[in-house]
């Protein structure tokens, strides 16, 4: 039980997928203009990431390892992820057209969100069990959602600030992301892993 808690804490805060591992920066910068869209993106990514972590674990252990096809790992994972993203896209389009419009190009881009593939591969690398993989995926996604929403809140405020011209737009967002990343260093050492 405690192990699971450690995994959750570790992935969400200490080894945050965005601010500490620097994965998934494209949606982090792209969909953080509005809190609502960030929340939607967070949920969509959570769904995809958790599912992908579980599915890729299944593909790895049930298909690739027994058949000795580990060299196909990246290829098959990308296939699985792409499939799940397509499915999510169709579902969101039906369920919430507003969110679908707000997410725009970034929704299909979850496919290429390196966090998704990264987490799937890390799971295999660290030899997680199925439950651990699921939790690892969920924790990473929760951490992703957390910082995405916090960052979106900050950027909504940044948009109203009198930022000097050279820093307007992306530069100030990167500076802020850097400071946020530094703040997350405070969690260092919380769990030893």
């Amino acid at each position: 039980m405690q192990d699971y808690l450690v995994i959750l804490l570790s992935t969400a805060l200490v080894n945050n997928v965005v601010l500490v591992k620097f994965l998934g920066l494209c949606p982090f910068m792209g969909v953080s203009r509005k809190t609502d869209a960030a929340l939607g993106m967070g949920f969509a990514t959570t769904f995809v990431l958790t599912l992908a972590a579980a599915a890729s674990w299944c593909v790895e252990t049930l298909l690739l390892v027994p058949l000795g096809l580990e060299f196909l790992r990246i290829l098959s994972f990308i296939l699985v992820i792409a499939g799940i993203v397509q499915f999510t896209e169709a579902a969101i389009r039906k369920i919430s057209p507003t969110l679908y419009r707000a997410l725009g190009i970034y929704l299909p881009l979850i496919t290429t969100n390196c966090a998704v593939l990264g987490v799937a591969l890390l799971n295999i690398q660290q030899g997680h069990s199925f439950a651990e993989s699921l939790l690892y995926g969920f924790g990473s996604a929760a951490g992703f959602t957390l910082v995405l929403v916090i960052f979106a809140g900050l950027r909504e405020r940044l948009a109203r600030l009198d930022v000097p011209a050279p820093f307007q737009g992306a530069p100030i967002a990167f500076v802020t992301a850097g400071l946020l990343s530094m703040a997350f260093m405070g969690f260092a050492g919380l769990v030893s892993q």
């Binding site: 916090i150 260093m185 405070g186 260092a188 050492g189 919380l190």
Partner: peptide, 17 residues
């Protein structure tokens, strides 16, 4: 639990965010 002896700066920054 953290590796820094004092967490005030980080705590403030995190809550600022």
């Amino acid at each position: 639990w953290g590796s820094f002896p004092e967490g005030v700066a980080f705590a403030v920054l995190l809550m600022n965010a």
